[in-house]
Design a protein around this nucleic acid. Structure first.
Lengths: 261, 261
DNA sequence: CGAATTGTTGATCCGGGTCAAGCTGCGTGG
DNA sequence: CCACGCAGCTTGACCCGGATCAACAATTCG
Protein backbone atom coordinates (compact mmCIF):
# COMPACT_ATOMS: atom_id res chain seq x y z
CA UNK A 1 0.00 0.00 0.00
CA UNK A 2 1.24 3.40 -0.96
CA UNK A 3 0.08 6.39 0.99
CA UNK A 4 0.98 9.57 -0.79
CA UNK A 5 -1.36 12.01 0.83
CA UNK A 6 -3.46 11.96 3.93
CA UNK A 7 -6.41 14.18 4.38
CA UNK A 8 -8.23 14.43 7.66
CA UNK A 9 -9.36 18.02 7.43
CA UNK A 10 -12.12 19.43 9.61
CA UNK A 11 -14.52 21.19 7.34
CA UNK A 12 -16.22 24.53 7.64
CA UNK A 13 -19.78 24.35 6.44
CA UNK A 14 -20.98 26.92 3.96
CA UNK A 15 -23.14 29.86 4.94
CA UNK A 16 -26.86 29.31 5.13
CA UNK A 17 -29.26 29.96 2.33
CA UNK A 18 -29.51 33.60 1.42
CA UNK A 19 -31.96 35.70 -0.48
CA UNK A 20 -31.38 35.80 -4.18
CA UNK A 21 -29.13 38.26 -5.89
CA UNK A 22 -29.52 36.70 -9.31
CA UNK A 23 -32.95 35.85 -10.66
CA UNK A 24 -32.65 33.27 -13.43
CA UNK A 25 -34.00 35.68 -16.02
CA UNK A 26 -30.91 37.81 -15.60
CA UNK A 27 -28.48 35.01 -14.90
CA UNK A 28 -25.00 36.29 -15.68
CA UNK A 29 -23.97 32.90 -17.04
CA UNK A 30 -26.70 32.34 -19.56
CA UNK A 31 -25.60 35.17 -21.78
CA UNK A 32 -22.15 33.64 -22.20
CA UNK A 33 -21.45 32.02 -25.55
CA UNK A 34 -20.81 28.66 -23.90
CA UNK A 35 -24.41 28.21 -22.84
CA UNK A 36 -27.54 27.50 -24.78
CA UNK A 37 -30.44 29.82 -24.61
CA UNK A 38 -33.52 28.62 -22.80
CA UNK A 39 -37.20 28.94 -23.60
CA UNK A 40 -38.92 31.74 -21.68
CA UNK A 41 -41.29 29.31 -19.97
CA UNK A 42 -38.39 27.09 -18.93
CA UNK A 43 -36.61 30.08 -17.55
CA UNK A 44 -39.63 31.10 -15.60
CA UNK A 45 -39.98 27.58 -14.21
CA UNK A 46 -36.31 27.50 -13.26
CA UNK A 47 -36.69 30.73 -11.41
CA UNK A 48 -39.38 29.18 -9.26
CA UNK A 49 -37.44 25.94 -9.04
CA UNK A 50 -34.51 27.84 -7.64
CA UNK A 51 -34.86 28.02 -3.93
CA UNK A 52 -32.15 30.51 -3.11
CA UNK A 53 -28.44 31.05 -3.16
CA UNK A 54 -25.73 29.59 -1.03
CA UNK A 55 -22.53 31.41 -0.27
CA UNK A 56 -19.69 28.99 0.23
CA UNK A 57 -16.29 30.13 1.42
CA UNK A 58 -13.04 28.93 0.02
CA UNK A 59 -12.24 25.64 1.74
CA UNK A 60 -15.79 24.89 2.82
CA UNK A 61 -17.52 21.57 2.20
CA UNK A 62 -20.72 21.82 0.22
CA UNK A 63 -21.32 18.08 0.19
CA UNK A 64 -19.85 15.36 2.35
CA UNK A 65 -19.55 11.70 1.38
CA UNK A 66 -21.96 9.52 3.29
CA UNK A 67 -24.37 12.32 4.14
CA UNK A 68 -27.72 13.13 2.60
CA UNK A 69 -28.84 16.44 1.28
CA UNK A 70 -32.21 17.64 0.06
CA UNK A 71 -30.51 19.99 -2.38
CA UNK A 72 -29.05 20.18 -5.82
CA UNK A 73 -26.82 23.04 -6.85
CA UNK A 74 -25.63 24.88 -9.87
CA UNK A 75 -22.36 26.66 -9.40
CA UNK A 76 -22.94 30.29 -10.24
CA UNK A 77 -19.48 31.62 -9.55
CA UNK A 78 -16.28 30.26 -8.11
CA UNK A 79 -14.31 27.02 -8.33
CA UNK A 80 -14.58 23.71 -6.51
CA UNK A 81 -13.75 20.05 -6.79
CA UNK A 82 -15.32 16.65 -6.21
CA UNK A 83 -13.33 13.99 -4.40
CA UNK A 84 -13.41 10.69 -2.59
CA UNK A 85 -11.33 9.49 0.34
CA UNK A 86 -10.10 6.04 1.31
CA UNK A 87 -10.35 5.18 4.96
CA UNK A 88 -6.73 5.94 5.67
CA UNK A 89 -7.01 9.41 4.17
CA UNK A 90 -5.75 8.87 0.64
CA UNK A 91 -7.64 11.31 -1.53
CA UNK A 92 -8.64 11.14 -5.18
CA UNK A 93 -9.95 14.27 -6.84
CA UNK A 94 -12.52 13.22 -9.41
CA UNK A 95 -13.22 16.44 -11.26
CA UNK A 96 -13.24 20.20 -10.92
CA UNK A 97 -16.32 22.38 -10.74
CA UNK A 98 -16.72 25.60 -12.64
CA UNK A 99 -19.59 28.02 -13.19
CA UNK A 100 -22.55 26.37 -14.86
CA UNK A 101 -21.81 22.92 -13.48
CA UNK A 102 -24.65 21.04 -11.90
CA UNK A 103 -23.69 19.66 -8.51
CA UNK A 104 -25.19 16.78 -6.61
CA UNK A 105 -26.37 14.43 -9.32
CA UNK A 106 -23.07 12.69 -9.77
CA UNK A 107 -23.07 9.39 -8.02
CA UNK A 108 -26.71 9.24 -7.08
CA UNK A 109 -29.94 11.02 -7.64
CA UNK A 110 -31.28 9.82 -4.35
CA UNK A 111 -29.68 8.50 -1.23
CA UNK A 112 -26.30 9.12 0.31
CA UNK A 113 -23.65 11.15 -1.40
CA UNK A 114 -20.85 9.01 -2.72
CA UNK A 115 -18.34 11.83 -2.88
CA UNK A 116 -17.53 15.15 -1.24
CA UNK A 117 -17.28 18.64 -2.62
CA UNK A 118 -14.97 21.40 -1.46
CA UNK A 119 -14.72 24.92 -2.80
CA UNK A 120 -11.45 26.33 -4.10
CA UNK A 121 -12.64 29.92 -3.89
CA UNK A 122 -15.48 31.88 -2.37
CA UNK A 123 -18.45 30.81 -4.42
CA UNK A 124 -22.12 31.31 -5.05
CA UNK A 125 -24.36 28.34 -5.67
CA UNK A 126 -27.96 28.25 -6.84
CA UNK A 127 -29.97 25.93 -4.62
CA UNK A 128 -32.66 23.58 -5.91
CA UNK A 129 -34.86 21.04 -4.20
CA UNK A 130 -34.12 17.46 -5.09
CA UNK A 131 -37.70 16.53 -4.22
CA UNK A 132 -39.01 18.70 -7.01
CA UNK A 133 -36.84 17.10 -9.66
CA UNK A 134 -39.56 14.81 -10.93
CA UNK A 135 -41.83 17.82 -11.27
CA UNK A 136 -39.20 19.39 -13.50
CA UNK A 137 -39.14 16.30 -15.69
CA UNK A 138 -42.91 16.33 -15.93
CA UNK A 139 -43.46 19.98 -16.64
CA UNK A 140 -40.40 20.64 -18.76
CA UNK A 141 -39.14 17.53 -20.47
CA UNK A 142 -36.61 19.64 -22.32
CA UNK A 143 -34.97 20.56 -19.03
CA UNK A 144 -34.99 16.92 -18.02
CA UNK A 145 -33.22 16.11 -21.23
CA UNK A 146 -30.72 18.87 -20.49
CA UNK A 147 -29.95 17.35 -17.11
CA UNK A 148 -29.21 14.04 -18.75
CA UNK A 149 -27.06 15.91 -21.24
CA UNK A 150 -25.06 17.38 -18.40
CA UNK A 151 -24.72 14.02 -16.70
CA UNK A 152 -23.45 12.62 -19.94
CA UNK A 153 -20.90 15.42 -20.22
CA UNK A 154 -19.67 14.69 -16.71
CA UNK A 155 -19.19 11.09 -17.72
CA UNK A 156 -17.11 12.11 -20.68
CA UNK A 157 -14.84 14.09 -18.43
CA UNK A 158 -14.52 11.18 -16.02
CA UNK A 159 -13.70 8.84 -18.88
CA UNK A 160 -10.88 11.11 -20.04
CA UNK A 161 -9.61 11.40 -16.51
CA UNK A 162 -9.61 7.69 -15.97
CA UNK A 163 -7.75 7.18 -19.23
CA UNK A 164 -5.21 9.71 -18.06
CA UNK A 165 -4.63 8.29 -14.61
CA UNK A 166 -4.63 4.73 -15.87
CA UNK A 167 -2.49 5.01 -18.96
CA UNK A 168 -0.59 8.27 -19.27
CA UNK A 169 2.86 9.01 -17.82
CA UNK A 170 3.34 11.69 -15.18
CA UNK A 171 4.27 14.38 -17.73
CA UNK A 172 1.40 13.50 -20.01
CA UNK A 173 -1.04 13.46 -17.14
CA UNK A 174 0.03 16.81 -15.80
CA UNK A 175 -0.03 18.38 -19.25
CA UNK A 176 -3.45 16.93 -19.96
CA UNK A 177 -4.93 18.04 -16.66
CA UNK A 178 -3.75 21.60 -16.91
CA UNK A 179 -4.71 21.98 -20.55
CA UNK A 180 -8.09 20.47 -19.82
CA UNK A 181 -8.91 22.71 -16.88
CA UNK A 182 -7.64 25.73 -18.75
CA UNK A 183 -9.86 25.02 -21.72
CA UNK A 184 -12.90 24.37 -19.61
CA UNK A 185 -12.36 27.60 -17.76
CA UNK A 186 -11.83 29.57 -20.93
CA UNK A 187 -15.06 28.21 -22.39
CA UNK A 188 -16.84 29.28 -19.26
CA UNK A 189 -15.59 32.80 -19.71
CA UNK A 190 -13.26 32.77 -16.73
CA UNK A 191 -10.30 35.08 -17.28
CA UNK A 192 -9.38 35.56 -20.88
CA UNK A 193 -6.19 33.83 -21.97
CA UNK A 194 -3.03 34.67 -20.08
CA UNK A 195 -4.77 36.28 -17.18
CA UNK A 196 -6.46 33.09 -16.08
CA UNK A 197 -5.10 31.51 -12.92
CA UNK A 198 -6.22 28.02 -11.97
CA UNK A 199 -6.68 28.29 -8.20
CA UNK A 200 -5.19 25.00 -7.06
CA UNK A 201 -2.25 23.91 -4.96
CA UNK A 202 0.17 21.28 -6.14
CA UNK A 203 -1.41 18.95 -3.62
CA UNK A 204 -4.67 19.23 -5.56
CA UNK A 205 -2.88 18.42 -8.78
CA UNK A 206 -1.16 15.45 -7.16
CA UNK A 207 -4.45 14.10 -5.82
CA UNK A 208 -6.03 14.47 -9.23
CA UNK A 209 -3.24 12.75 -11.10
CA UNK A 210 -2.80 9.92 -8.65
CA UNK A 211 0.82 10.96 -8.03
CA UNK A 212 2.77 11.93 -4.93
CA UNK A 213 3.17 15.58 -4.06
CA UNK A 214 6.92 15.48 -4.54
CA UNK A 215 6.80 13.90 -7.93
CA UNK A 216 4.05 16.25 -8.98
CA UNK A 217 6.23 19.17 -8.02
CA UNK A 218 9.12 17.86 -10.06
CA UNK A 219 6.88 17.29 -13.05
CA UNK A 220 5.36 20.75 -12.83
CA UNK A 221 8.81 22.30 -12.55
CA UNK A 222 9.73 20.58 -15.77
CA UNK A 223 6.69 22.03 -17.47
CA UNK A 224 7.65 25.41 -16.04
CA UNK A 225 11.20 25.19 -17.33
CA UNK A 226 9.86 24.22 -20.73
CA UNK A 227 7.92 27.46 -20.69
CA UNK A 228 4.50 25.88 -20.78
CA UNK A 229 3.14 26.94 -17.43
CA UNK A 230 3.92 29.27 -14.58
CA UNK A 231 3.25 28.54 -10.95
CA UNK A 232 2.55 31.51 -8.78
CA UNK A 233 0.77 32.74 -5.68
CA UNK A 234 -2.62 31.14 -5.78
CA UNK A 235 -2.24 28.72 -8.62
CA UNK A 236 -1.20 27.90 -12.13
CA UNK A 237 -1.15 29.90 -15.33
CA UNK A 238 -0.93 28.41 -18.79
CA UNK A 239 1.71 29.92 -21.06
CA UNK A 240 1.76 27.55 -24.00
CA UNK A 241 -1.48 25.69 -24.40
CA UNK A 242 -0.65 24.10 -27.74
CA UNK A 243 2.51 22.52 -26.50
CA UNK A 244 0.69 21.12 -23.45
CA UNK A 245 -1.85 19.54 -25.76
CA UNK A 246 0.90 18.02 -27.87
CA UNK A 247 2.52 16.44 -24.83
CA UNK A 248 -0.80 15.12 -23.61
CA UNK A 249 -1.84 13.92 -27.05
CA UNK A 250 -5.11 15.69 -26.47
CA UNK A 251 -7.29 17.23 -29.14
CA UNK A 252 -9.12 19.74 -27.01
CA UNK A 253 -12.73 20.14 -26.01
CA UNK A 254 -15.36 19.87 -28.66
CA UNK A 255 -17.09 23.07 -29.57
CA UNK A 256 -20.77 23.61 -29.13
CA UNK A 257 -22.95 25.03 -26.44
CA UNK A 258 -24.16 23.25 -23.41
CA UNK A 259 -27.36 23.56 -21.46
CA UNK A 260 -27.55 25.46 -18.20
CA UNK A 261 -29.94 24.35 -15.51
CA UNK B 1 5.98 7.25 -21.39
CA UNK B 2 5.03 3.79 -20.37
CA UNK B 3 3.48 1.50 -22.90
CA UNK B 4 2.06 -1.53 -21.22
CA UNK B 5 -0.36 -2.76 -23.80
CA UNK B 6 -0.95 -2.01 -27.41
CA UNK B 7 -4.22 -2.62 -29.07
CA UNK B 8 -4.67 -2.31 -32.79
CA UNK B 9 -7.33 -4.90 -33.32
CA UNK B 10 -9.43 -5.07 -36.45
CA UNK B 11 -13.01 -5.30 -35.39
CA UNK B 12 -15.85 -7.47 -36.53
CA UNK B 13 -19.08 -5.54 -36.66
CA UNK B 14 -22.13 -7.01 -35.00
CA UNK B 15 -24.91 -8.68 -36.94
CA UNK B 16 -27.59 -6.43 -38.33
CA UNK B 17 -30.84 -5.66 -36.64
CA UNK B 18 -33.06 -8.69 -36.24
CA UNK B 19 -36.71 -9.20 -35.54
CA UNK B 20 -37.60 -9.24 -31.90
CA UNK B 21 -37.50 -12.28 -29.73
CA UNK B 22 -38.29 -10.42 -26.56
CA UNK B 23 -41.17 -7.95 -26.43
CA UNK B 24 -40.70 -5.56 -23.50
CA UNK B 25 -43.81 -6.83 -21.80
CA UNK B 26 -42.18 -10.18 -21.29
CA UNK B 27 -38.63 -8.91 -20.82
CA UNK B 28 -36.69 -11.59 -18.99
CA UNK B 29 -34.75 -8.95 -17.06
CA UNK B 30 -37.59 -6.97 -15.62
CA UNK B 31 -38.81 -9.76 -13.42
CA UNK B 32 -35.45 -10.00 -11.68
CA UNK B 33 -35.32 -8.58 -8.16
CA UNK B 34 -32.64 -6.07 -9.17
CA UNK B 35 -34.99 -4.09 -11.38
CA UNK B 36 -37.87 -1.82 -10.63
CA UNK B 37 -41.25 -2.52 -12.01
CA UNK B 38 -42.55 -0.20 -14.68
CA UNK B 39 -45.97 1.31 -15.25
CA UNK B 40 -47.98 -0.52 -17.90
CA UNK B 41 -48.16 2.56 -20.12
CA UNK B 42 -44.42 3.07 -19.86
CA UNK B 43 -43.87 -0.53 -20.78
CA UNK B 44 -46.12 -0.18 -23.76
CA UNK B 45 -44.25 2.93 -24.86
CA UNK B 46 -40.90 1.22 -24.45
CA UNK B 47 -42.07 -1.63 -26.57
CA UNK B 48 -42.77 0.80 -29.39
CA UNK B 49 -39.61 2.72 -28.61
CA UNK B 50 -37.62 -0.45 -29.05
CA UNK B 51 -36.67 -0.78 -32.64
CA UNK B 52 -35.35 -4.31 -32.67
CA UNK B 53 -32.62 -6.51 -31.39
CA UNK B 54 -28.97 -6.67 -32.25
CA UNK B 55 -26.97 -9.83 -32.00
CA UNK B 56 -23.36 -9.09 -31.26
CA UNK B 57 -20.71 -11.78 -31.26
CA UNK B 58 -18.01 -12.12 -28.70
CA UNK B 59 -15.22 -9.75 -29.71
CA UNK B 60 -17.36 -7.52 -31.91
CA UNK B 61 -17.43 -3.74 -31.64
CA UNK B 62 -20.85 -2.29 -30.93
CA UNK B 63 -19.60 1.29 -30.77
CA UNK B 64 -16.38 2.81 -32.04
CA UNK B 65 -14.79 5.97 -30.69
CA UNK B 66 -15.05 8.84 -33.13
CA UNK B 67 -17.99 7.41 -35.02
CA UNK B 68 -21.62 8.41 -34.87
CA UNK B 69 -24.54 6.14 -34.31
CA UNK B 70 -28.27 6.76 -34.45
CA UNK B 71 -28.85 4.12 -31.81
CA UNK B 72 -28.98 3.58 -28.12
CA UNK B 73 -28.87 0.13 -26.64
CA UNK B 74 -29.83 -1.78 -23.58
CA UNK B 75 -27.84 -4.90 -23.00
CA UNK B 76 -30.31 -7.76 -22.75
CA UNK B 77 -27.87 -10.61 -22.31
CA UNK B 78 -24.12 -11.02 -22.39
CA UNK B 79 -21.11 -9.10 -21.20
CA UNK B 80 -19.14 -6.20 -22.67
CA UNK B 81 -16.84 -3.34 -21.79
CA UNK B 82 -16.33 0.33 -22.57
CA UNK B 83 -12.83 1.58 -23.31
CA UNK B 84 -10.71 4.37 -24.74
CA UNK B 85 -7.42 4.17 -26.62
CA UNK B 86 -4.49 6.54 -26.76
CA UNK B 87 -2.99 7.08 -30.17
CA UNK B 88 -0.16 4.64 -29.62
CA UNK B 89 -2.54 1.88 -28.64
CA UNK B 90 -2.50 2.09 -24.88
CA UNK B 91 -5.95 1.04 -23.73
CA UNK B 92 -7.98 1.96 -20.67
CA UNK B 93 -11.09 -0.01 -19.88
CA UNK B 94 -13.59 2.34 -18.30
CA UNK B 95 -16.31 0.01 -17.13
CA UNK B 96 -17.96 -3.33 -17.79
CA UNK B 97 -21.41 -3.82 -19.23
CA UNK B 98 -23.92 -6.31 -17.91
CA UNK B 99 -27.55 -7.05 -18.63
CA UNK B 100 -29.79 -4.07 -17.98
CA UNK B 101 -27.09 -1.50 -18.68
CA UNK B 102 -27.96 1.34 -20.98
CA UNK B 103 -25.33 1.79 -23.67
CA UNK B 104 -24.54 4.84 -25.71
CA UNK B 105 -25.35 7.71 -23.40
CA UNK B 106 -22.02 7.74 -21.63
CA UNK B 107 -19.88 10.49 -22.99
CA UNK B 108 -22.42 12.23 -25.11
CA UNK B 109 -26.06 12.24 -25.90
CA UNK B 110 -25.44 13.62 -29.32
CA UNK B 111 -22.40 13.73 -31.53
CA UNK B 112 -19.42 11.47 -31.85
CA UNK B 113 -18.81 8.62 -29.50
CA UNK B 114 -16.01 9.30 -27.09
CA UNK B 115 -15.35 5.67 -26.32
CA UNK B 116 -15.66 2.22 -27.85
CA UNK B 117 -17.57 -0.83 -26.80
CA UNK B 118 -16.60 -4.44 -27.30
CA UNK B 119 -18.51 -7.54 -26.28
CA UNK B 120 -16.97 -10.19 -24.06
CA UNK B 121 -19.52 -12.81 -25.01
CA UNK B 122 -22.19 -13.34 -27.60
CA UNK B 123 -24.84 -10.83 -26.65
CA UNK B 124 -28.28 -9.52 -27.41
CA UNK B 125 -28.93 -5.79 -27.34
CA UNK B 126 -32.23 -3.93 -27.53
CA UNK B 127 -31.98 -1.16 -30.10
CA UNK B 128 -33.51 2.28 -29.63
CA UNK B 129 -33.51 5.38 -31.77
CA UNK B 130 -31.55 8.26 -30.36
CA UNK B 131 -33.71 10.66 -32.34
CA UNK B 132 -36.79 9.65 -30.40
CA UNK B 133 -35.21 10.28 -27.03
CA UNK B 134 -36.79 13.69 -26.59
CA UNK B 135 -40.16 12.13 -27.35
CA UNK B 136 -39.55 9.72 -24.49
CA UNK B 137 -38.84 12.60 -22.16
CA UNK B 138 -41.99 14.36 -23.26
CA UNK B 139 -44.39 11.47 -23.12
CA UNK B 140 -42.96 9.66 -20.15
CA UNK B 141 -41.08 11.96 -17.82
CA UNK B 142 -40.69 9.11 -15.39
CA UNK B 143 -38.62 7.22 -17.95
CA UNK B 144 -36.56 10.34 -18.58
CA UNK B 145 -35.90 10.52 -14.88
CA UNK B 146 -34.90 6.86 -14.95
CA UNK B 147 -32.37 7.52 -17.67
CA UNK B 148 -30.80 10.25 -15.58
CA UNK B 149 -30.83 7.83 -12.67
CA UNK B 150 -28.88 5.33 -14.74
CA UNK B 151 -26.42 7.97 -15.90
CA UNK B 152 -25.89 8.92 -12.30
CA UNK B 153 -25.23 5.29 -11.40
CA UNK B 154 -22.66 5.04 -14.18
CA UNK B 155 -20.93 8.08 -12.73
CA UNK B 156 -20.79 6.49 -9.33
CA UNK B 157 -19.07 3.47 -10.81
CA UNK B 158 -16.59 5.66 -12.66
CA UNK B 159 -15.85 7.61 -9.49
CA UNK B 160 -15.03 4.40 -7.63
CA UNK B 161 -12.89 3.23 -10.50
CA UNK B 162 -10.96 6.44 -10.65
CA UNK B 163 -10.38 6.33 -6.91
CA UNK B 164 -9.10 2.81 -7.33
CA UNK B 165 -6.73 3.46 -10.20
CA UNK B 166 -5.50 6.71 -8.70
CA UNK B 167 -5.00 5.75 -5.10
CA UNK B 168 -5.11 2.02 -4.46
CA UNK B 169 -2.13 -0.36 -4.63
CA UNK B 170 -2.06 -3.19 -7.17
CA UNK B 171 -3.46 -5.75 -4.71
CA UNK B 172 -6.18 -3.44 -3.53
CA UNK B 173 -7.13 -2.51 -7.06
CA UNK B 174 -7.35 -6.09 -8.23
CA UNK B 175 -9.35 -7.13 -5.19
CA UNK B 176 -11.70 -4.19 -5.62
CA UNK B 177 -12.27 -4.79 -9.30
CA UNK B 178 -13.04 -8.44 -8.97
CA UNK B 179 -15.28 -8.00 -5.96
CA UNK B 180 -17.06 -5.15 -7.70
CA UNK B 181 -17.74 -7.02 -10.92
CA UNK B 182 -18.75 -10.10 -9.02
CA UNK B 183 -21.28 -8.17 -6.97
CA UNK B 184 -22.71 -6.37 -9.95
CA UNK B 185 -23.12 -9.65 -11.77
CA UNK B 186 -24.72 -11.33 -8.81
CA UNK B 187 -27.23 -8.49 -8.47
CA UNK B 188 -28.06 -8.90 -12.11
CA UNK B 189 -28.85 -12.54 -11.57
CA UNK B 190 -25.89 -13.85 -13.53
CA UNK B 191 -24.79 -17.24 -12.20
CA UNK B 192 -25.52 -17.78 -8.55
CA UNK B 193 -22.53 -17.64 -6.24
CA UNK B 194 -19.69 -20.01 -6.96
CA UNK B 195 -20.80 -20.88 -10.42
CA UNK B 196 -20.29 -17.36 -11.78
CA UNK B 197 -17.34 -16.91 -14.08
CA UNK B 198 -16.29 -13.40 -15.03
CA UNK B 199 -15.45 -13.76 -18.72
CA UNK B 200 -12.30 -11.65 -18.97
CA UNK B 201 -8.67 -12.28 -19.78
CA UNK B 202 -5.88 -10.98 -17.58
CA UNK B 203 -5.20 -8.42 -20.28
CA UNK B 204 -8.65 -6.96 -19.66
CA UNK B 205 -7.97 -6.79 -15.95
CA UNK B 206 -4.63 -5.11 -16.59
CA UNK B 207 -6.19 -2.52 -18.87
CA UNK B 208 -8.85 -1.79 -16.29
CA UNK B 209 -6.46 -1.42 -13.38
CA UNK B 210 -3.89 0.64 -15.25
CA UNK B 211 -1.23 -2.02 -14.64
CA UNK B 212 0.99 -4.07 -16.94
CA UNK B 213 -0.06 -7.54 -17.94
CA UNK B 214 2.87 -9.15 -16.16
CA UNK B 215 2.30 -7.39 -12.88
CA UNK B 216 -1.41 -8.08 -13.10
CA UNK B 217 -0.65 -11.76 -13.51
CA UNK B 218 1.59 -11.76 -10.45
CA UNK B 219 -1.03 -9.95 -8.42
CA UNK B 220 -3.80 -12.31 -9.46
CA UNK B 221 -1.63 -15.30 -8.66
CA UNK B 222 -1.21 -13.94 -5.17
CA UNK B 223 -4.96 -13.64 -4.79
CA UNK B 224 -5.26 -17.20 -6.08
CA UNK B 225 -2.72 -18.54 -3.64
CA UNK B 226 -4.56 -16.77 -0.85
CA UNK B 227 -7.63 -18.71 -1.88
CA UNK B 228 -9.70 -15.70 -2.85
CA UNK B 229 -10.12 -16.31 -6.54
CA UNK B 230 -9.59 -19.00 -9.13
CA UNK B 231 -8.50 -18.37 -12.67
CA UNK B 232 -9.67 -20.84 -15.22
CA UNK B 233 -10.57 -21.38 -18.86
CA UNK B 234 -12.60 -18.40 -19.80
CA UNK B 235 -12.20 -16.17 -16.81
CA UNK B 236 -12.21 -15.61 -13.10
CA UNK B 237 -14.24 -17.10 -10.29
CA UNK B 238 -14.58 -15.59 -6.85
CA UNK B 239 -13.95 -17.95 -3.95
CA UNK B 240 -13.85 -15.61 -0.98
CA UNK B 241 -15.74 -12.41 -1.58
CA UNK B 242 -15.53 -11.11 1.97
CA UNK B 243 -11.78 -11.30 2.07
CA UNK B 244 -11.52 -9.50 -1.26
CA UNK B 245 -13.68 -6.73 0.13
CA UNK B 246 -11.49 -6.47 3.20
CA UNK B 247 -8.35 -6.12 1.09
CA UNK B 248 -10.00 -3.52 -1.10
CA UNK B 249 -11.50 -1.65 1.83
CA UNK B 250 -14.77 -1.74 -0.02
CA UNK B 251 -18.22 -1.83 1.56
CA UNK B 252 -20.10 -3.38 -1.31
CA UNK B 253 -22.86 -2.14 -3.55
CA UNK B 254 -25.80 -0.44 -2.00
CA UNK B 255 -29.02 -2.36 -2.05
CA UNK B 256 -32.10 -1.16 -3.83
CA UNK B 257 -33.59 -1.64 -7.22
CA UNK B 258 -32.67 0.21 -10.32
CA UNK B 259 -34.72 1.25 -13.28
CA UNK B 260 -34.60 -0.62 -16.55
CA UNK B 261 -35.07 1.23 -19.79
C1' DC C 1 7.67 35.45 17.66
C1' DG C 2 6.22 30.55 16.46
C1' DA C 3 3.22 27.67 13.67
C1' DA C 4 0.93 26.56 9.44
C1' DT C 5 0.90 26.38 4.36
C1' DT C 6 2.95 25.78 0.20
C1' DG C 7 6.66 25.13 -2.89
C1' DT C 8 11.41 23.09 -3.86
C1' DT C 9 15.25 19.90 -4.07
C1' DG C 10 18.39 15.96 -3.27
C1' DA C 11 19.12 11.06 -1.71
C1' DT C 12 17.44 6.70 -1.48
C1' DC C 13 14.17 3.00 -2.09
C1' DC C 14 10.63 0.07 -4.05
C1' DG C 15 6.38 -1.15 -6.63
C1' DG C 16 5.53 -2.15 -10.69
C1' DG C 17 7.28 -1.93 -15.78
C1' DT C 18 10.02 -4.26 -19.33
C1' DC C 19 12.29 -8.12 -21.40
C1' DA C 20 12.63 -12.79 -22.33
C1' DA C 21 11.35 -17.40 -22.25
C1' DG C 22 8.42 -21.24 -21.75
C1' DC C 23 3.97 -23.52 -20.96
C1' DT C 24 -0.82 -25.04 -22.28
C1' DG C 25 -4.60 -25.66 -25.23
C1' DC C 26 -6.75 -25.00 -29.56
C1' DG C 27 -7.72 -24.34 -34.40
C1' DT C 28 -5.95 -24.78 -39.18
C1' DG C 29 -3.82 -26.65 -42.96
C1' DG C 30 -0.78 -30.04 -45.03
C1' DC D 1 -1.89 -37.73 -38.28
C1' DC D 2 1.44 -34.01 -37.05
C1' DA D 3 3.29 -29.22 -37.57
C1' DC D 4 2.48 -24.83 -36.93
C1' DG D 5 0.81 -20.56 -35.21
C1' DC D 6 -1.77 -18.09 -32.02
C1' DA D 7 -3.92 -16.62 -27.63
C1' DG D 8 -3.53 -16.65 -22.98
C1' DC D 9 -1.14 -17.68 -18.56
C1' DT D 10 3.28 -17.93 -15.81
C1' DT D 11 7.92 -16.93 -14.06
C1' DG D 12 12.47 -15.02 -13.38
C1' DA D 13 15.88 -11.23 -14.06
C1' DC D 14 16.58 -6.65 -14.33
C1' DC D 15 15.44 -1.76 -14.61
C1' DC D 16 13.15 2.68 -13.97
C1' DG D 17 9.44 5.98 -12.87
C1' DG D 18 7.74 7.64 -9.25
C1' DA D 19 7.28 7.09 -3.84
C1' DT D 20 9.36 8.16 0.46
C1' DC D 21 12.31 10.64 3.55
C1' DA D 22 14.44 14.71 4.91
C1' DA D 23 15.59 19.45 4.69
C1' DC D 24 14.85 24.11 3.80
C1' DA D 25 12.78 28.57 1.88
C1' DA D 26 9.13 31.88 1.53
C1' DT D 27 4.63 33.46 3.02
C1' DT D 28 0.99 34.32 5.91
C1' DC D 29 -1.39 34.52 10.11
C1' DG D 30 -2.31 34.60 15.06
Amino acid sequence: MTITSTHTKQYVLPATVQGRLYPCESCPLRSLPAFREAEPDELEFLNRFKKGELLAQKGSAVLVEGSRTPHLYTLLSGWGFRFKLLEDGRRQILNYLMPGDLIGLQGSIEGEMQHSIEMLSDSILCVFDRSRLLELYRKHPGLGYDITWLASREERMLDENLLSVGRRSAMERAAYLIAFIHERARCTGLGSGRRLIIPVTQQHVADTLGLSLVHTNKTLRKLSRLGMIEWQEGGCRVINLKELMVIAGWEGLGTGRRPLV
